[in-house]
Computed example of a mutant assay.
Amino acid sequence: MNHTDPLRVAFFSGNYNYVRDGANQAQNLLVGHLLDRGVTVRVYSPTTATPAFEARGTVVDVPAIPFPGRGEYHLGRGLPRRPRRDLAAFAPDVVHVSAPEFLGHAAVTWARRHKVPVVATVHTRFETYFEYYGLAMVQPAIKAILRRFYNRADRVLVPTPSMAEVIRGLGVKTPISLWGRGVNHRRFHPGARSLEWRRSLGIADDEVAIGFLGRLVLEKGLGVFADVLGELQRRGVRHRALIVGKGPAQEWFAERVPNAAFAGFQTGDELGRAVASMDMLFNPSVTETWGQVTSEAMAAGVPVVAARATGAVDLLEEGRTGFLIPPQSVPEYAAAIARLIDDPALRLRMGQAAHEHAQAFRWDSANEAVLTTYREVLAARRG
């Protein structure tokens, strides 16, 4: 590559836009930033005729099969002839891989064979998923796959220092850098709160709404959420649950939280309104690497009760912007939530502190760090 040539990045994603989640929205925002900075990007991902949202950049379809047990997700079948030919013609300077599945492994193999540096990003804690589906016995094998995948990269990008510790704990020796995340502050802010919208869902003005935000899948901690609501009910603590999102576990979840208000899938400014209309966010998930919903709630001036795990420990300040609770500890979650319900002044004070703290979460500076990483790995290869 000539120093004056535009940088060419081949970006590999297991889910670029066919299902909406925090990981692929972060990927699209990154690609948009790179394109705005003059980088040439080509995205390789399974696609669908009915995408969840419009993709940024040029997307090359990779043949895929439904993921076993989770048919809404697709599993790329490696790197077949057609996308492989496209990749060779594109001749990237950097290969960026975002998931340790068949497509990601094939892309890393191609890059190493052609002496192209690899940047790998961590978007979720795959090794934790299997516990929720009765498959904990496969975790050692999954961890071995992750260790091999990230050790074949030139650089690994993680969202937070706590995730860097997790990756190093797997035995990964590859240098690790930070790619943080941002928040759309025009959408998520305290002024978006709407009592009228809450009333339309049957939530009274004097009811404290405990919010859940995200895809309704077991690995988001739905079981713990439901157990905590049950504990609050046993303690006689008046509350309402406000559920924002949809997913394959919705019917199961609705049976567990029969008195909850389900707002369904929200997007755009309607999503900002829904988040700001919560009185607190309860996020018991331990699978996050950043916790996008946590950062968005903070920006909206909403205090957060979350699992003391990656995805929250780097975002929340205990007792100031929210509470961090040992994962699975139903009594401690219930106690923290009851404290916020009983003390409106504390909710207000924590929400204001969370809003102020979240002003540091900016997409432009976060995504610029990725471009800096590309240049660093290229310079190291030339050296």
Results as ranks from 00 to 15, higher is better:
residue 363 W to R: 02
residue 375 R to L: 15
residue 43 V to W: 05
residue 72 E to Y: 04
residue 40 T to D: 15
residue 50 T to L: 09
residue 372 T to R: 15
residue 249 A to S: 14
residue 204 A to I: 01
residue 221 G to W: 11
residue 298 M to K: 07
residue 65 I to D: 13
residue 305 V to K: 03
residue 79 L to I: 05
residue 381 R to N: 11
residue 346 L to C: 05
residue 377 V to F: 11
residue 49 A to P: 02
residue 342 D to K: 13
residue 4 T to I: 10
residue 32 G to R: 13
residue 306 A to N: 02
residue 171 G to W: 08
residue 247 G to D: 05
residue 285 S to T: 15
residue 201 L to G: 00
residue 372 T to N: 14
residue 215 R to W: 07
residue 155 R to M: 14
residue 335 A to V: 09
residue 356 E to M: 07
residue 9 V to C: 06
residue 105 H to A: 13
residue 18 Y to A: 10
residue 13 S to Y: 04
residue 220 K to G: 06
residue 250 Q to M: 10
residue 184 N to L: 10
residue 182 G to V: 03
residue 128 T to L: 15
residue 325 I to L: 08
residue 163 M to Y: 09
residue 44 Y to N: 04
residue 210 I to C: 00
residue 380 A to Y: 07
residue 115 K to N: 15
residue 316 L to K: 01
residue 112 R to H: 08
residue 280 M to Y: 03
residue 4 T to V: 12
residue 40 T to R: 15
residue 208 V to T: 14
residue 302 V to G: 02
residue 320 R to N: 08
residue 52 A to Y: 06
residue 34 L to Y: 01
residue 378 L to D: 04
residue 130 F to D: 10
residue 232 L to M: 06
residue 301 G to F: 07
residue 85 R to P: 03
residue 192 A to W: 04
residue 63 P to C: 08
residue 228 V to D: 02
residue 143 K to M: 13
residue 171 G to I: 01
residue 172 V to T: 07
residue 197 W to I: 00
residue 70 R to H: 15
residue 163 M to R: 09
residue 27 Q to D: 07
residue 164 A to M: 10
residue 166 V to C: 05
residue 166 V to I: 14
residue 210 I to D: 01
residue 41 V to N: 08
residue 169 G to T: 09
residue 160 T to A: 11
residue 34 L to G: 06
residue 119 V to K: 03
residue 174 T to K: 01
residue 68 P to H: 07
residue 241 A to R: 11
residue 52 A to F: 11
residue 227 D to W: 00
residue 59 V to M: 03
residue 357 H to E: 14
residue 330 V to Q: 02
residue 337 I to K: 04
residue 55 A to S: 15
residue 302 V to S: 06
residue 153 A to E: 04
residue 324 L to F: 04
residue 270 E to R: 15
residue 36 D to W: 03
residue 132 Y to E: 11
residue 127 E to R: 05
residue 130 F to Q: 10
residue 203 I to Q: 01
residue 40 T to K: 14
residue 120 A to S: 15
residue 60 V to Q: 08
residue 91 A to C: 06
residue 356 E to A: 13
residue 40 T to H: 13
residue 279 D to Q: 05
residue 196 E to N: 05
residue 286 V to R: 08
residue 264 G to F: 12
residue 254 A to M: 10
residue 69 G to Q: 10
residue 229 L to V: 10
residue 144 A to C: 01
residue 97 V to Y: 01
residue 153 A to M: 03
residue 140 P to V: 07
residue 190 P to N: 02
residue 13 S to N: 07
